[in-house]
Write a protein that binds this DNA or RNA. Sequence first.
RNA 1: GGCGCCGUCGCCAAGAGGUAAGGCAGAGGUCUGCAAAACCUCCACCCCCGGUUCAAAUCCGGGCGGCGCCUCCA
Length: 470
Amino acid sequence: MRLYNTLTRSEENFAPGPDNTVRMYTCGLTVYARGHIGNFRTFICVDVLRRTLKYLLGYRVKQVMNFTDVDDRTIIGAKKAGMDLRTYTERHIADFRDDARALGLEEVEESPRATDEANLHAMADLVRLLEKNGHTYVSDGSIYFKISTMPRYGRLAHLDHEGMKPGARVDADTYAKEDARDFVLWKASKPDEPAWDLVDPPGRPGWHLECSAMALRLLGEPPIDIHAGGVDLIFPHHENEIAQSECATGKPFSRFWVHVEYLIVDEQKMSKSLGNTYTIPDVVIRGYRPSAVRYLLLSAHYRKQLNFTWASLGQAEEALRRLTDFLVRLGTVAREGASGDIAARVGQARRDFADAMQDDLNTAAALGVVFELVRSLRSAIDAGQLGTGDVPGIRQAFDEFDRVLGVFSLRLAEDDQPPVPVEEIERLIEDRQGARRRREFAAADRIRDDLAARGVLLEDGTGGTRWKRK
RNA sequence: GGCGCCGUCGCCAAGAGGUAAGGCAGAGGUCUGCAAAACCUCCACCCCCGGUUCAAAUCCGGGCGGCGCCUCCA
């Protein structure tokens, strides 16, 4: 497939190594708060990349997505909550897992935490290797990486430090560093902060260190195939990961760097200070479904900023409803027979879909292909040109689309949980049918309106009345 | 100051030299007890100005506008 590589700033052909396994690392959530939909944009896009590699291209995938469970924010949060760090972050990890499930994220092979014993040891080993190779120095009890020992530093971010504006933000503890560009590998802990004495002097891991250590420990010999995350991680995080990993191992760290653009809200960057971060529970409280969030996030290309508005989420909700209505309708096809013409249309759509996905994950175009196929097939149903013999092939195609997009089955699963008990809905449909037979339309309409007010819609078709979740 | 992205219908969004996919919303029609759903029909010379070309939304130059990064960030 064609995949954009931030390292070369161009699309390249992607294929895994000879064992046909894609080894992929994704920078996950810092678990000091519930993840917001901006975080999940990245995770959903990476999930779709993973699914494309697995299901469309037939590669095996070994993906690691970490939890950053030790940093300033988690330490402060735990202190405020009066909990120990591990217990505090545990809670946010559980929330993340709930949200991930609601959004249809596939479980990844490994989801390590930075403070897992094995990972701390891997980090300590990495620091020792860097010390041995002469890339470090100690200042004020912290161990720093010395940028000047790595001539190739800055290759990913294309940053020219000569041109840095003097007014640009600079780390508060610059004074402790020999050079403002240096970054901390192992941070001196304050007295009431967690510390590990795995390296000398004791302290806690710097943010960048954990990802290098976990990627190398869990994915094996570098280079790994893909390293992914949000665009905001290009610098400094990924640049620093490269520095640590390559100076420690002497080998390239990752062949591909994949970065997902920002989700912005009402034309502004999402941030806690602007109060415009939304979580999955926020979305549900407003009456929208997680499946619509997933759909919306896939409706634009992952390398373009996506402006989130409640209006666009509503549009996503409607679009997705149309698609899944079709899948339900397929089950009502009664005419016998099959048509070669239908099979040809389905086959063409499958090829177009696969082409779009392999073109640097063009989900927007892929969704366009699906919609065109749906309209064409529905038209055929209305015209009496589609028979039961066509249905399995159509279902197979939509299963294939959905294995990659992961959004139809998510929506259908939500539909299976109506806000009114199914037995009650069915009883009310019976009552309404009786009223209709007696031509008591006012009574019939009242039943329909009441159910609609409770979130259940009724539709009268030739095969009887069907209900669906609003 | 440096690096980079973007501007396509009321809204969302593909397309990246060959004459504008798709979705939402809207208008008219078919179907329906009425609806809903669905189908049919309609709904864009692509921010502006130059240039290259037989041909430009697509390439080049210059504007205008929006956004991101330059050590908290998905």
